[in-house]
Simulated assay, not measured.
Amino acid sequence: MAGVSIIISQYFARAAGFTLTDAGVLLDGDEVLLRTKVENGRFPAQSHYDILGLVAEKVPDRAELSIRYARLIDIDKLGTLALACKAAPNVGGALQRMSRYHSLLSDSVRYHLDTQENGVFLRQDVLVGTGPGLVFSPEAGLCAMFQTIRQVAADTITAAAVTFRHSAPRDAPAFEAFFGCAVDFEAGSDGILFSHESLSTRNRLGDQALSEFLTRHLDAELEQVKSEPTLVRSTKEEIARGLSEGVPRMADIARELGLSVRSFHRRLADHGVSFQALAEETRREIAMSMLRDDTCPLSEIAFLAGFSEQSAFNRAFKRWTNQTPANYRRSLGR
């Protein structure tokens, strides 16, 4: 089940004027807005998006909030990942580490580095999450990534271009001032273009031997994060097998796994997940993976993801990613 390091959500809550305790309680003064389960410093990704959704309802200026959030982040609080980025020889190396190991902070999104003629494009893909707070993922996430690079670089860095898939907020000019370049909205992807000159900028620390040592350590941490609990993995596998006949019932999956429904529900809850959330996550993962194959018809993807009608698939995918399956597929080819 996708999770987010609580420190990320705590910075965001603080930027919005709220408090998120280490126990997972979101407070507006003395008022409790949300409670969520925290385990080993992480909590479910959807809880993070629920927090973002509450913030979206109360804070209208999205750009200013995303920038404030990014500037609050103290890179030294990010542990080994922060030191590995500092030790990278240049900005390009720091970007490689941030994109590869970002799931140590949150595996609800993925960052990719797409090489282009005029530089490297840092692209964000949202993997998990629904609700009104979803719009903050690219805005706040890319601001945070850019601010992190600024903290490790020895010289001033500006972006060559920034794009967002969604429409512009009312305070959009604040993004241009922050990134130092034009920012386009309703584009094909969410990301930042770094020029070759910026990529070659030296980092303040820049220690190759230390960088290699820390990278090995991060690889070990990454393997631990990637390893889902056996029950969660088995549940998703059983759900995936039955999706072509519609979303399986919880009772049927429990029986396949040799559990009573009550025991199945309790054991999933112990891992901080629900059957409904795993079913939704499995359908989304299947759909997004299959959309990378241009030869696979949308109707077949809808069927294999458990949708009896294309229109229902379109609505669900729009809820997941804020764009249609067709638009998402086109954005992959850009």
Rank of each mutant, 00 (worst) to 15 (best):
L72K: 14
S108L: 10
R233V: 04
R165Q: 09
A220Y: 13
L33A: 07
L134R: 13
A316F: 04
F179W: 05
R170C: 11
Q116K: 15
H48N: 10
H271F: 11
D74C: 07
S211M: 11
S9Q: 08
G206Q: 12
T215Y: 08
G119L: 08
R267C: 08
I75Q: 11
P325M: 03
Q10L: 09
L20D: 01
I286M: 12
L222R: 12
L231D: 04
Q323V: 08
L113E: 12
T148K: 04
S211C: 14
N90G: 02
A84Q: 06
T148R: 03
T163W: 00
N322C: 08
L268T: 05
A269V: 06
A302C: 00
G188M: 05
H217P: 00
K58V: 07
G206V: 07
A305D: 01
K318Q: 07
Q310P: 03
R71K: 13
A15N: 12
H217E: 15
Y111F: 14
N90F: 00
P297C: 07
L214K: 09
A2V: 10
R319W: 03
G191Y: 03
E309C: 02
A287N: 01
G119T: 07
R255P: 05
V109T: 13
I6M: 06
D74Y: 05
Q310Y: 09
